[in-house]
C-alpha cells in the first residue's frame, strides 16, 4: 500500500507542483490542491482505478473566510481512499463543475449551492433542492443564526408563553425551590 501511495504522490506532484500531500495512517491519503485543478486531478485518479466517488463534504471555515470542499474517492482495486481538498473564497464561491466525471456529483452540487451558496461553473440543475422559497442567506453557513430565524419566523402558541423557560414555570406553578447549581442553566 505504501508503494501505491508514494507512486500516486509522485504522479500528482509531478503534474501539479502546487499540490501538497498529507499521508494518514491506514488507507487514507489527502491532497491539498487549488480549486481549478480539481476536475483534472479527479479525472486522472479516476483513470487510475479510483472509480467510486464516495462523498463530497463541505465545511465552512468562517474564521478563515473560506469554504472547504473535500472530494473523497475510493479505489476498489487499491483499497485506498483519497481526499482531494480544495478551498474557495467565501465572498465569491465559484467551483469547477465535476458533473461530467461522476453523475451523482449533481446531487452534491445542488446541495452545496443551496445550503452554502457555492456556485459551480456551467451547472444547470433545478434551483431548489430541499428548501422552498428561501430568501435568507444559505442556511448551513456558520453565520446563519437558527435561533434568531426561528424567533422571527414562528410564534409561540397562545397560552404557552409561560413555557418559554421551563424552570421558571415550574417554580411559579409548584412554588418549588430550584437548587443553586441548577440556576445557572436557567435563561
Amino acid at each position: 500500500m505504501e508503494k501505491i501511495k508514494s507512486n500516486l504522490i509522485e504522479a500528482i506532484k509531478g503534474t501539479y507542483p502546487d499540490a501538497r500531500e498529507q499521508d494518514h495512517e491506514g488507507n487514507r491519503l489527502d491532497f491539498y490542491v487549488k480549486k481549478q485543478c480539481v476536475p483534472s486531478i479527479l479525472n486522472y485518479i479516476k483513470g487510475e482505478g479510483y472509480i467510486h466517488l464516495s462523498h463530497i463534504a463541505f465545511v465552512d471555515w468562517i474564521e478563515e473566510g473560506e469554504f472547504e470542499l473535500i472530494y473523497i474517492v475510493w479505489s476498489p482495486k487499491d483499497k485506498i481512499k483519497i481526499f482531494i481538498r480544495a478551498r474557495v473564497d467565501r465572498e465569491n464561491p465559484l467551483m469547477p463543475n465535476i458533473e461530467s466525471i461522476w453523475r451523482q456529483a449533481n446531487t452534491y452540487q445542488r446541495e452545496a449551492r443551496e445550503m452554502y451558496g457555492i456556485q459551480f461553473e456551467g451547472f444547470e440543475a433545478p434551483n431548489e433542492f430541499v428548501l422552498e422559497d428561501w430568501n435568507e442567506i444559505p442556511p448551513m453557513r456558520r453565520d446563519f443564526d437558527t435561533q434568531a430565524y426561528a424567533e422571527e419566523t414562528f410564534f409561540h402558541r397562545p397560552g404557552r408563553e409561560d413555557a418559554m423557560d421551563v424552570r421558571e414555570a415550574i417554580i411559579e406553578r409548584s412554588r418549588e425551590e430550584i437548587p443553586d447549581f441548577a440556576k445557572k442553566y436557567s435563561r
Binding site: H55, A57, F58, V59, D60, Q104, N106, T107
Partner: peptide
C-alpha cells in the same frame, strides 16, 4: 463538532439514479 456530513445510500440512489 465543526461539521457532521452524512451520505446515505439513498443520496445517490434516490435522485439521479
Amino acid at each position: 463538532p465543526r461539521r457532521v456530513h452524512l451520505r446515505g445510500a439513498a443520496y445517490v440512489h434516490g435522485i439521479t439514479l
